[in-house]
């Protein structure tokens, strides 16, 4: 195999230029990649492409508000996001449940997205916030919705010459917003099920409801159809309406059995979290 070639370039521009010339394994904090590519007996982690280190790039560590949108640099660590005054509180609730302080000091938001785990802890909230992903390459840039960017487990819509530079979080007005993570223990645990929901009321009726489930399918599950149908329903919701929404998700949620949980447990708990969210305010 020989020694691994790697890059740690001084600027984002140089990084983008190199990515246009060579297919690289981009590495931010490395908290997922270093485990996935671990070698036995303390040998260096093995990658089949040159590694491009990006976690030192200052261009990827800004958090700014532009109009009503929050722009979060892809290499902001969980700790940096947790401690930043502009970040919505509900994101802090979710991030506090990721791993433990030492990993939060290293893992990044961009990394959590590109790792595209069905159980990624930041993903359900990013979905209901309609987060946008900005990608740059030597040819230009594009912005894509998170639900279109994540294609499946460990698969994202990123071309090899592109780099995720920032996450754009539009403002969301809600009377209630929740994030729930169900896992074996409170720290260092990967979700068996996660759930994010938001509700805005207008004169006793649902103005807007959004919800998304994690770890119950290959990608986060959200239904714009059902959210649309809930608009205008009187709140508190009629039990028949609640039953209808729960029955709908009972059909579209397809969890699996794995070493972390069972499909039956996942579905039962996911639907109960949804029901609880719809029935309470």
């Amino acid at each position: 195999m020989g020694t691994v070639l790697s890059y740690r370039l001084a600027s984002l521009e140089e990084t983008i230029a190199q990515l246009s010339r060579e297919d690289c394994q981009i590495m931010a904090g490395g908290t997922d990649l270093m485990v996935q590519h671990k070698s036995p007996m303390g040998a260096p982690a093995r990658f089949d492409k040159p590694v491009m280190f990006i976690d030192h790039l200052k261009e990827l560590k800004q958090i700014d508000q532009v109009n009503q949108d929050l722009h979060i640099g892809a290499c902001c660590t969980y700790t940096e996001i947790l401690e930043h005054p502009l970040i919505p509180n509900i994101f802090k609730v979710a991030i506090k449940q990721i791993a433990a302080p030492a990993i939060r000091n290293r893992g990044t938001l961009g990394g959590n997205i590109c790792n595209a785990s069905p159980a990624g802890d930041t993903l359900p909230l990013l979905y209901i916030f309609n987060a946008q992903i900005r990608l740059r390459s030597s040819k230009g840039e594009r912005v894509v919705g998170i639900q279109d960017f994540i294609l499946g487990p460990r698969r994202v819509d990123r071309l090899r010459e592109e780099i995720l530079t920032e996450i754009i979080l539009p403002e969301m007005l809600a009377d209630r917003i929740v994030f729930e993570k169900v896992a074996n223990r409170r720290a260092d645990a990967i979700a068996k099920i996660s759930f994010a929901g938001s509700m805005r009321l207008e004169g006793g009726r649902v103005g807007e409801a959004r919800f998304a489930f994690g770890a119950v399918g290959p990608t986060i599950v959200r239904s714009l159809d059902i959210e649309q149908k809930l608009k205008g329903e009187a709140f508190p919701l009629d039990p028949k309406v609640v039953d209808g929404v729960v029955a709908y998700f009972d059909r579209i949620i397809t969890p699996i059995d794995d070493h972390r949980s069972t499909a039956a447990y996942r579905k039962t708990v996911a639907l109960r979290l949804l029901r609880h969210f719809l029935e309470t305010m």
């Binding site: 790697s6 904090g29 280190f53 030192h56 000091n105």
Partner: peptide
């Protein structure tokens, strides 16, 4: 553990505690 779960390898990186089993030296 070598997976970032046990914390026995904790070091300070620029004063922040991190798991040295997850850090590539190139970074």
């Amino acid at each position: 553990c070598g997976d970032g779960e046990c914390g026995a390898c904790s070091v300070f990186v620029n004063t922040l505690v991190q798991n040295s089993c997850l850090i590539p030296v190139g970074a």
